[in-house]
């Protein structure tokens, strides 16, 4: 049964992906070089810290690697899966960084996102190489941090796993688009004031990202609850849960 599910997932995912690239990533050439360099500079320490954390955790516990592999595939698939929003008449995609931020921490989540974005920029005409840094900051850094912090804050207030996961996914998605709006507005504004343009771009994202954020929240909650039921020991190991919160 479980093998069938795994094979089913492998067979179904391409069906979900076969479409034109309806991306939210900032495309190649949109940002001027100085701004592209700024975002590379912002992203670099996060990616380096992610590499350091991955090495450290993998050397302590080898079973950490399959989880990172799984989440890398999840982030890659989710972040290039176009989902139409009939109410808005547009398409966009969830990010998947909420779930990776919760499960492996924001540092490794940034690293996972950077790899996914690089493959997408190189081969899928999805984002760009010059805008890679900006895309890492919006999707990787902001998405992962928002997801991680929201989940931890809600769990510390004794909110249930499902609701905490939902809110984490929702805020991870919205934070990504908030950051994308800021990056875009600062890069293209020229002599125009920043705030009005930022507001205009953000409002343009709202009709699409409002419902997609809810969908991302539901997906994140579903994955967190599924792991909680199937492998609570893994969540304890990843410090998502305290041992006393698990009833084995």
């Amino acid at each position: 049964m479980k093998t069938a599910l795994s094979v089913g997932a492998a067979l179904l995912s391409p069906m979900l992906l076969v479409s034109n690239a309806y991306a939210m990533h900032i495309s190649e050439g949109i940002l001027p070089w100085n701004w592209a360099a700024v975002w590379f500079g912002v992203a670099a320490p996060f990616v380096a810290f992610g590499l350091y954390r991955l090495r450290k955790l993998s050397s302590v516990d080898l079973s950490f690697k399959p989880l990172v592999g799984l989440l890398a595939a999840v982030v890659f698939i989710i972040s290039c899966m176009p989902i139409p929003v009939p109410t808005a008449g547009t398409c966009s995609h969830p990010c998947g960084t909420g779930i990776s931020g919760i499960l492996v921490g924001p540092a490794i989540s940034v690293l996972i996102t950077a790899v996914a974005l690089l493959i997408q920029a190189l081969f899928l005409a999805h984002g760009g190489l010059s805008t890679w840094g900006a895309d890492i900051v919006s999707m990787g850094v902001m998405g992962s941090l928002a997801g991680f912090l929201t989940f931890r804050a809600l769990r510390s207030m004794k909110v249930s796993m499902g609701v905490s996961g939902f809110m984490a996914g929702l805020f991870a998605d919205w934070a990504t688009y908030l950051a994308t709006s800021a990056e875009l507005a600062s890069g293209i504004r020229g002599d125009s004031p920043f705030l009005p343009l930022f507001g205009k771009i953000l409002i343009a994202f709202v009709p699409t990202q409002l419902p997609l954020g809810v969908l991302e929240g539901a997906m994140t909650a579903g994955m967190v609850v599924l792991l909680y039921r199937k492998r609570p020991d893994l969540l304890v190991k990843m410090r998502v849960l305290k041992p006393e919160e698990v009833t084995l």
């Binding site: 067979l11 391409p14 992906l17 076969v18 989880l67 592999g69 899928l124």
Partner: peptide, 24 residues
Amino acid sequence: LLFVFLAAGAAGGFVCGYYWRILM
């Protein structure tokens, strides 16, 4: 582009299923 997306989706789906099986 459709072919590349198909290949990427198949590879991603395979990796996802493989690690899911290992973990679960």
